[in-house]
């Protein structure tokens, strides 16, 4: 039988307090995933059904957002040319932390049908950390929804740490990015 005697509660260390707060935060974060849709590829076509009455992603607390500052999840929907990669990285770096990335379709995994194109990158993971992939070419809407649920699970289990990896392995990512993009000579496309 447990003692009913009053015991002084053990003072939590700062780390523990932070952890508790983090867990609370994680609850909110996984129930309110605001997306930034980087719709350059064909997989973007799967998003409208996911959003509307058929699958209704709003019930997961997800919704589209206008700018990277406001968003939590970056959806990369399909193939990514080198030209857009620059912008993707720029956008990803503008998002406020914690931030997650979901890659759509085979293009973000291995290049998909564009795997041998000189203008397209093959593995998104080389350039920015991806937390969850939705495979398929193209993936059907259930798969997309499943991908989101996976992401929610990952956050719950504290495994969606891509954004932390981006900090810790920043040098590696940067190197890959620069290798892919080459030296950028243009300062500004329209107003040189």
């Amino acid at each position: 039988m447990e003692s009913t005697k009053y015991t002084q509660p053990v003072a939590l260390s700062k780390k523990q307090v932070d952890r508790k707060w983090w867990e609370i935060g994680d609850f909110f974060r996984r129930n309110s995933l605001w997306m930034l849709m980087y719709c350059t590829g064909c997989c973007a076509i799967e998003l409208p059904p996911a959003m509307t009455s058929a699958y209704d992603m709003e019930r997961l607390g997800m919704g589209p957002m206008a700018t990277p500052r406001q968003a939590d999840v970056l959806l990369v929907t399909g193939y990514l040319s080198l030209k857009t990669l620059r912008r993707l990285i720029y956008t990803y770096e503008q998002m406020s932390e914690p931030k997650y990335v979901v890659g759509f379709g085979s293009c973000t995994i291995n290049g998909g049908i564009y795997h041998d194109s000189h203008a397209v990158i093959n593995q998104l993971d080389q350039y920015i950390p991806v937390d969850s992939y939705v495979a398929g070419c193209m993936p059907n809407t259930e798969a997309v929804m499943n991908g989101f649920v996976d992401l929610i699970e990952l956050i719950k289990n504290k495994k969606a740490n891509g954004w932390k990896n981006y900090h810790t392995n920043n040098a590696w990512y940067k190197k890959n990015q620069i290798d892919a993009l080459g030296e950028v000579r243009i300062k500004d496309e329209f107003h040189q």
Partner: peptide
Amino acid sequence: MDTYTAGNFVYTEEH
């Protein structure tokens, strides 16, 4: 200057 430009790179303040 680090502001949302829909992914564009803008280097001139006036713009």
